[in-house]
Design a binder for these strands. Structure first.
Length: 695
DNA sequence: GATCCTCGAGTTCC
DNA sequence: CTCGAGGATC
């Protein structure tokens, strides 16, 4: 089926409605029955809402088979249909990025209950809206006898065998001897993000080994849905499913607690897993606060959520509010901004990095996703492009969750325009660097193509210069990427030493460069001349020599001249320097033009203190200790903390392992803190760190 | 030879 | 932050 563009003005409303119905039926089938959606959920929701809107405005266009009138879900062959004793209704969902949507809901509820301002705020149970699959669990005398999917709300599928494989779901309720004859527990089957990642990892391994019928999953929900509706329970059992209970179906001879929160507590007491992220709040303010709080920690939750759900807590009030058509008036779901969106791939640019690496970058039609507008996303390398079969003109799905860098997740296959071609970096570039025209090369066994132009290539010169001036290298204030572009493009600068020969007079000739900023740069360059050997070595940008290795080299050799003339064997004596790194350093300094650059820089007045190997006598209380920093400290910046620790003889590393002695944690510390707790590493705050440092 | 650990390098948006 | 790869360690 083809999916046409939104609506042409010539198209009648009736035609559009019919078209939407067809599309929604088609996508619902792909989604619910085949577990192989072509559209991201947001897109489906958009179509659904558009149809709803048309039908609300033109009731005569409402047909009985409209997807809005029936929650789609077809019983697959192999599963027995189950008629729900109490229908599984859906909650009205509002796509409302503002927390203030809660205010409108609260106002609606108060109006229905005919309350005025003098009445106290309404009590709500606030919960998460899980991104999984709704399930009804039927317990008779405390024993799980049947599990069914929601299906169309009236009739679902019997998936008892698969659900029984989920360890979190009790086969027998706690206190089963006191359990009522019938109690149906409703909740959501989902997959945790970490479980999802390892599942996909396993799938990839199977595919790599040649398994034909295996595939990786687009997102945790599809994987969960697929597992629950897997015909072979043995396969379902291998999928890492989890469960949260949040509601009730049919009951017999059981006194239902008077509040929703009380009900969830009761379910927990019976041994059902329930979410800890739930709260009883009061009035619109309480809802807004909950929405905000959950929104802030959304990315840190171990599972995906769509949004939050608000329910009037008091069951008596729920009954007074009743239902509109098939949705309860006493509950509403509010979705957060989507973390996945569809957009078009307008083109693929090739960037040249400092080492000459050619990186394909997707140019996207700007799209709002995960809180920001995204127009670029890296495609990493040719392998990645091939694996995803990304082509120019394709409609692609872009994901951005929290602070994570945007990525192209995949292509919407049936939206591919005709006559597209597989994208090839080599073909596009005709084997030439897009910046300098040099031949491009790829080493045996490597995935990256590189420009062979070296510093002849303007892109590499620019990147080399930026690296040289960067904060952890020479720390030249006032030299950013815009200025580097100008300096290189204008031909004013060809080599690094020429930077230090710039005068205010030459600089003011450039656009947007007046005397003041020119003087700033000259001052910045002047200040940068006093540096350390480690920084200077790092600034040169030798392959495989990063900040740490540069420092180790400086410490080991003590003077630049000893490094310049060091043999590969001598270099190998340095900590963490093996054959690859040693060769890289040796080759770098063997090249006459590199030696010349070094000499010229020294001639410009760049200085550092050299030592002959004798230790300085500053106190080193932290010698031999390894630290890891995480989160934001109250007063120290990351760099300051690092410098202080190193000055005291300690080491700062990026990841926590059992060799880590201390983890210094600040606000919003992430996974490293968890890891530290797991490994029992000592955790310090800023105060604790300062206490270890010499005065 | 395998496994763990660390370092280097690349990346987006505001 | 994350990936890949170089280096160290057993």
């Amino acid at each position: 089926m083809s999916v046409h563009s939104k609506s042409s003005s010539a198209q009648s409303v009736a035609e559009r409605a019919a078209e939407l119905r067809d599309q929604l039926h088609h996508h619902a089938h792909r989604y619910y029955v085949l577990d192989d959606p072509e559209l991201p959920d947001v897109e489906y929701d958009k179509l659904f809402e558009e149809l709803q809107a048309i039908e609300a405005e033109h009731p005569d266009l409402l047909t009985t088979d409209s997807p809005t009138q029936r929650i789609i879900g077809k019983v697959l062959d192999g599963f027995t249909p189950v008629r729900h004793a109490v229908p599984m209704l859906s909650i009205r969902t509002e796509t409302d990025t503002e927390a203030s949507g809660a205010v409108a809901f609260d106002a609606r509820v108060r109006r229905e209950l005919e309350l005025d301002e003098s009445d106290p705020p309404i009590e709500y149970a606030a919960e998460l809206k899980f991104d999984g699959l709704a399930i009804n669990l039927r317990y008779e005398h405390g024993v799980l006898v049947q599990a069914a999917t929601r299906g169309n709300g009236e009739t679902g599928e019997d998936v008892t065998q698969n659900i029984r494989t989920i360890a979190q779901i009790p086969l027998r309720l706690r206190g089963a001897e006191l359990a009522p004859p019938v109690i149906e527990v409703r909740g959501e089957v989902y997959i945790r993000r970490d479980d999802f990642d390892s599942l996909n990892e396993r799938q990839r391994e199977l595919i790599a080994k040649g398994a034909k019928n295996e595939k990786t999953f687009v997102n945790p929900r599809n994987a969960a849905a697929g597992a629950v509706r897997q015909l072979d329970p043995a396969i379902a059992a291998k999928r890492p499913l989890s469960f949260f209970a949040y509601g009730l179906g049919a009951v017999q001879d059981w006194t239902i607690p008077p509040t929703h929160s009380g009900l969830v507590d009761a379910l927990q007491a019976m041994g059902m897993p329930v979410s800890v992220e739930r709260a009883v709040v009061h009035g619109a303010d309480g809802l807004v606060e909950f929405h905000r709080r959950v929104g802030a920690k959304r990315d840190d939750l171990p599972f995906d959520i769509d949004g939050v759900v608000y329910k009037v807590n008091d069951r008596a009030l729920q009954q007074r509010l009743g239902f509109v058509s098939r949705e309860p008036r006493w509950a509403v779901a509010h979705k957060y901004t989507a973390q996945e969106q569809m957009t078009r791939l307008l083109g693929i640019d090739i960037q040249v990095g400092r080492t000459g690496k050619l990186t394909p970058v997707a140019k996207l039609e700007p799209v709002f996703v995960g809180g920001t507008t995204v127009s670029n996303a890296t495609l990493h390398n040719q392998d990645e492009i091939d694996r995803k079969d990304v082509r120019i003109g394709d409609t692609v799905i872009v994901r951005r969750a929290g602070d994570v860098i945007p990525e192209v997740v995949g292509v919407v296959a049936d939206k591919r325009p005709p006559d597209t071609q597989a994208f090839s970096i080599v073909a596009k570039l005709q084997s030439k660097c897009p910046v300098c025209g040099s031949e491009i090369t790829r080493e045996e066994g490597e995935v990256d193509w590189r420009c062979s132009g070296g510093l002849f290539c303007a892109a590499q010169r620019k990147q080399a210069m930026l690296h040289f001036a960067s904060r952890r290298a020479m720390d030249v204030e006032g030299l950013g990427d815009k200025l580097v572009d100008q300096l290189v493009d204008s031909g004013l600068i060809r080599t690094l030493p020429e930077l230090y020969k710039l005068g205010v007079a030459k600089l003011v000739a450039l656009e947007r460069m007046a005397e003041k900023s020119a003087q700033n740069l000259v001052d910045g360059l002047e200040r940068s001349k006093k540096t350390t050997l480690g920084r200077f070595l790092f600034a040169l940008g030798i392959r495989h020599v990063g900040e740490t290795t540069a420092k180790d080299l400086a410490k080991h050799f003590g003077s630049l001249d000893r490094i310049l003339d060091a043999s590969v064997e001598q270099l190998l004596e340095v900590n963490d320097v093996g054959p690859v790194v040693a060769q890289s350093i040796h080759t770098f300094f063997a090249q006459p033009h590199n030696r010349e650059v070094v000499e010229q820089l020294r001639a410009c007045g760049i200085t550092w203190e050299e030592h002959d190997g004798t230790a300085d006598n500053a106190p080193k209380p932290l010698a031999g200790k390894t630290f890891v920093l995480t989160g934001t400290l109250p007063t120290l910046s990351r760099d300051d903390a690092k410098d202080l620790i190193e000055a005291a003889g300690g080491k700062v590393s990026g990841s926590v392992s059992k060799k880590t002695h201390y983890v210094v944690a600040g606000a919003e510390a992430g996974s490293k803190l968890d890891k530290a707790q797991e490994l029992g590493v000592v955790i310090l705050d800023e105060e604790g760190l300062k206490a270890l440092l010499p005065p």
